[in-house]
């Protein structure tokens, strides 16, 4: 089990190797990487800045991770979330779920992302092409996605 909040980029292959190593009891590894998109519709952004609640973030990520381990037979998990200023194309978030079988790994990875998006105290602010900046609104679809696990 590992969670990390960092400004630096991450290497998916290196993180997977770090998590799995020489273990031979893991039959399924699901990795999810979230990336900054340049825009939706007509809107174009030049950067996105992620703020968080430093004293709470890792504690909340650990709670989310523990909840996943309580629900599925997971051998190992990694959650990495970046903060600070990111540009389109950069990686923001990494979830790795490792289990003996694929179903638990797939489901746990989806659960971890749904709960990271709705529970972990991060906030995105976008800077648009024209220089304006605006906080990203929470999306109802993310709440619905998280509620399906209750």
């Amino acid at each position: 089990m590992a969670v990390c909040v960092q400004t630096d980029d991450f290497d998916v292959a290196a993180e997977t190797e770090k998590l799995i190593g020489a273990r031979t009891d893991i039959g399924a590894v699901v990795t999810f990487t979230g990336r900054v998109r340049e825009g939706v519709g007509d809107k174009r952004i030049t950067s996105m800045t992620l703020e968080h609640y430093p004293d709470m973030t890792e504690a909340e990520m650990l709670r989310i991770e523990a909840e996943a381990h309580a629900r599925w037979p997971l051998q190992a998990t990694t959650l990495i979330h970046r903060v600070g200023e990111l540009r389109p194309g950069e990686q923001i978030v990494l979830v790795i779920a490792a289990s003996a079988h694929r179903q638990a790994a797939f489901e746990a990875a989806a659960f971890l992302m749904d709960f990271l998006k709705t529970r972990a105290p991060f906030w995105k602010k976008e800077t648009l092409l024209n220089g304006d900046s605006a906080w990203v609104d929470a999306r109802e679809v993310d709440n619905s996605a998280a509620e399906r696990w209750s």
Partner: peptide, 12 residues
């Protein structure tokens, strides 16, 4: 000892 106020979270 600590109370925080914030908008709905938008990480991930």
């Amino acid at each position: 000892r600590e109370v925080a106020f914030f908008p709905p979270v938008t990480g991930g």
